[in-house]
Computed example of a mutant assay.
Amino acid sequence: MATPLPAGLTAGAYAIDPSHSTASFTVRHAGIAKVRGTIAITSGVVTVGEDLESSSVTAELDAASVSTGDANRDGHLKSADFWHAEERPTWTFTSTSVKADGGDFVIVGDLTINGVTQTVELETEFTGTATDPFGNARAAFESELEISRADYGLTWNAALETGGFLVADKVKIALDISTIKQS
């Protein structure tokens, strides 16, 4: 059964606007504090079909753009200990399905980080449409997911004297996506 599009959203291709979109992450450090950072979304397309199920999403992110507010930590994240940003500079997401979830929806797809691809589910909210001052039709979305670092081969860590590890395995990712309608 086809699910109608959310009110205000029309079929067409919407380019992700990198200057108005963010990918942020949160991970526990030393088991007690949270470290937050961002990674640049460089490109992508949200293709809105005539119904929710015929829609799709692709996106690319730049692993070398990581920013946590600490240059040393950022350099370590870009290194072979974590993301191998020189060898694997691009993270990708390609949806495989879109399905309704109450008033929101879930985008299922393949997320590739560090050369490893895993299927993930993005809990997504359509936050609305607007026409910007330049006449561009915009649509915006917010998504969240949690991944395991180990699932992507991101296993570097250090044991703590008090037990546990320096970097938690679970990473929360939040996406705030602004798009511009192309067709």
Rank of each mutant, 00 (worst) to 15 (best):
Leu154Tyr: 06
Ser79Leu: 07
Ile147Gln: 01
Leu5Glu: 09
Thr47Ala: 08
Asp62Lys: 05
Glu50Pro: 04
Gly102Glu: 12
Gly49His: 00
Ile147Ala: 09
Ala71Thr: 10
Trp156Met: 03
Thr129Gln: 13
Glu53Lys: 04
Asp104Leu: 03
Asn157Lys: 12
Leu5Ser: 15
Ala80Lys: 03
Phe141Trp: 10
Ala64Gln: 13
Lys172Ala: 15
Gly49Thr: 02
Ala15Asp: 09
Glu144Asn: 12
Val171Trp: 05
Thr22Gly: 06
Leu175Arg: 04
Val106Asn: 05
Ser148Asp: 07
Thr22Phe: 05
Ala159His: 14
Ile173Phe: 01
Ile39Met: 04
Gly153His: 00
Gly31Pro: 09
Ala7Tyr: 06
Thr155Trp: 04
Thr26Ala: 14
Pro18Cys: 01
Thr90Glu: 01
Leu77Asn: 05
Leu61Gln: 00
His29Tyr: 07
Ala64Arg: 14
Val171Tyr: 08
Glu123Ala: 12
Thr94Tyr: 01
Ala159Phe: 03
Ala80Gly: 05
Ser54Thr: 15
Ser148Thr: 14
Asp17Thr: 00
Arg36Gln: 03
Ser56Asp: 12
Ala30Thr: 09
Asp169Pro: 13
Ala130Met: 06
Trp83Tyr: 15
Asp151Ala: 11
Arg73Val: 12
Thr68Pro: 10
Thr10Met: 11
Ala130Ile: 03
Gly109His: 04
Asn72Val: 15
Ala33Pro: 00
Leu52Ile: 08
Gly37Cys: 10
Glu53Phe: 09
Phe126Lys: 09
Thr155Leu: 07
Ala174Phe: 08
Thr179Ile: 00
Ala100Trp: 10
Gln182Pro: 14
Glu50Asp: 13
Asn72Ile: 10
Trp156Thr: 06
Glu144Met: 06
His20Ala: 14
Gly49Val: 05
Ala80Gln: 08
Glu144Cys: 00
Lys170Thr: 14
Ala7Phe: 02
Thr119Tyr: 09
Val45Tyr: 12
Thr42Ser: 14
Val66Phe: 03
Tyr14Ser: 08
Ala130Val: 13
Ala80Asn: 04
Ala63Met: 02
Ser43Gln: 11
Arg73Pro: 04
Asp101Lys: 08
Glu50Ser: 15
Ala33Leu: 05
Ala100Leu: 01
Tyr14Glu: 11
Ala33Lys: 05
Glu161Tyr: 04
Asn136Glu: 10
Glu53Leu: 06
Ser183Leu: 02
Arg149Pro: 07
Phe126Arg: 13
Arg149Ile: 04
Asn72Gln: 10
Thr22Trp: 07
Ala7Gly: 00
Val171Phe: 10
Arg28His: 10
Ala80Arg: 15
Ala158Ile: 10
Gly12Lys: 13
Thr47Pro: 01
Gly75Ser: 06
Glu125Asn: 08
Pro133Ala: 15
Ser95Tyr: 12
Glu146Phe: 02
Met1Leu: 07
Tyr152Glu: 05
Ala40Gln: 09
Thr22Arg: 03
His84Pro: 10
Ala40Met: 00
Ala33Asn: 00
Ala15Tyr: 01
Asn136Arg: 14
Gly102Ile: 02
Gly135Arg: 07
Leu160Cys: 15
Thr131Tyr: 04
Ala30Met: 15
Ala63Leu: 11
Ser19Phe: 12
His84Phe: 12
Gly37Gln: 11
Asp101Pro: 09
Ile16His: 14
Ile177Tyr: 03
Thr129Trp: 00
Arg149Leu: 11
Ala40His: 10
